[in-house]
Write a protein that binds this DNA or RNA. Structure first.
Lengths: 84, 84
DNA sequence: TAGTTATTTAGATAAATATCTAAATAATGA
DNA sequence: TCATTATTTAGATATTTATCTAAATAACTA
């Protein structure tokens, strides 16, 4: 849970997640959407990957990122138990 | 949303939230549960209050804290739209 | 194979954060 | 009113984090 909350505790990363909700994208396409350097975006993607919120797959020269929503079950349940 | 994710991005604060799920508690009672100084707990409570995750009410010498679960609706909805 | 493009790694830096101790504030009760 | 108790504020410090530029790695293409 720690890595998940950490991953979501950043506006840029939440926006990346929202982008990937629409469709899979490669690192460069994601970086284009932000006024942040590519290495910084790469770092954000790494944190999202550590939290298992995204998966990545090398496709030739590109690295394609996809959203993994299954990990959100845990978060959902945590919140629901609070609301009891 | 920013203050909410920030508030939840700390194990101690998540534990405080879980304690308050069971029953309202004053600052001292909460602090007793952790090996952390009272000023630090006070600071954590402040961050939870800024996120509107808890409310506080002065009761004589004590300050009683309560969980506010309504604010979790937003978070719940954000997650649910991701899962679509 | 050499040059180009895509992405990540390394290393640096400024800002944010979690924690502490000491001091201030506020309420109680002798 | 004075001492005690509960809590917060102030100020300091060490760690984490978001960002950058430069360099490294990997894959394509002429």
């Amino acid at each position: 849970m720690n890595s998940l909350f950490k991953a979501l505790n950043d506006e840029t990363r939440r926006q990346i997640v929202e982008l990937l909700k629409e469709k899979d994208m490669n690192a460069g396409e994601i970086a284009e959407r932000f006024n942040i350097s590519k290495p910084s975006i790469s770092h954000h993607l790494d944190i999202l990957r550590q939290a298992d919120l995204v998966t990545s797959e090398k496709k030739g020269q590109f690295v394609e990122y996809s959203l993994n929503t299954t990990i959100l079950e845990d978060l959902l349940n945590w919140i629901l138990t609070l609301k009891k």
